[in-house]
Amino acid sequence: MPHRAPGTVGALRREAAARLAAAGIDSPDLDAGLLLAQALGLSAAALRVAGPDLVSPAGAASFAQMLAQRLAGVPVARILGEKEFWSLPFTLSPDTLVPRPDTETVVEAALDALKGRAGPLRVLDLGTGSGAILAAILVELPTAWGLGIDQSPGAAATARDNLARAGLNRRGAVLVGDWAAAVDGPFDLVVSNPPYIPTGDIAGLAIDVRENDPMAALDGGPDGLVAYRAIIQEAPRLLAPGGVLVLELGIGQEAAVTALLCAAGLPPTHAARPDLGGVARALTASRP
């Protein structure tokens, strides 16, 4: 931002939104408002009525730093260090993906698959990242206990903190491991949002993903299916009889993952559940 006397809250927001729009960033006014509220320590409601107020030099300097990050392609959630998922706040770290609305489809599919089941349930979340999927499921299933596993110690630590933040630390645990190699079943539900981007497609991802999300959580190998093979190979021994497996899919991966499931004796129960954009996103299978 130019070095000059700070103006009003409203003027600063409008100027920032114009710069974001000129840079081709989606939702420029929303992004400007979120960052400005954070910089000034205001709630969204307070920001709306603070338009005529003058911005302090310290507030303007903090906002300028955040705006520069956003203009460089850093997602708002990374700048704020937090993202909402399933109406819950999740702390982020460099080792975790930013939870995305598309992934809520996995939670929906899992809850539908377990509808009507009584008694305690055991849930396993492979590649738990921030712990968003696991926490959302545990919130909705008060009799369930869950285990999250991630290969990254940093991600595992973040997930533990997020479970505690949601008041779930007594109903869930997080371990560091190579998928489910060191875990025994049985689990009533196994869920995963694995890395599924083919290696050759990484360079073409949007900058906010390519330059800011952890590569280990994106790169699915040459065909995007490496993690699916590892998970599906272990699934039969992890699932209880009648247990459910729900996998998040990348665009166009339903047929290939379905073939892997069928080969493992876990044919999908129905077509993949679409996300809000109509993409086949959550594939459900069950152990006979």
Rank of each mutant, 00 (worst) to 15 (best):
A216G: 03
A5G: 05
A173V: 10
T91S: 13
A44Q: 15
Q233D: 14
A280R: 14
A18C: 03
G200C: 00
P94T: 06
A235Y: 02
I133V: 15
L88M: 05
S56G: 12
A37C: 12
D188M: 03
L92F: 04
L138G: 11
D184L: 11
G221M: 02
G224D: 13
L42G: 10
T258Y: 09
D223R: 13
G116Q: 11
A264H: 11
P28K: 07
D188W: 00
G59R: 06
V174R: 08
V76Y: 03
D102S: 08
D188Q: 02
E248A: 07
S87M: 06
K115C: 12
A180W: 03
L47E: 08
A240R: 11
V279H: 14
A159G: 05
L67M: 09
S62H: 11
A217M: 09
G200L: 07
A180M: 07
S56K: 12
L249N: 09
V98K: 00
A61F: 07
R48L: 15
E254Y: 01
L239F: 06
A5Q: 15
P57F: 03
G33Y: 01
R287P: 03
R4F: 05
D31C: 12
G33T: 09
T105F: 08
S62Q: 14
Q38H: 15
A72R: 11
T105G: 08
C262I: 11
P101F: 06
D208A: 11
H3C: 06
D208G: 10
C262Y: 00
D201Y: 04
R14P: 00
Q69C: 14
S87Y: 03
R237P: 02
V257H: 04
A271H: 13
L40S: 08
K115E: 15
G277V: 03
A263T: 09
N169C: 04
D213K: 01
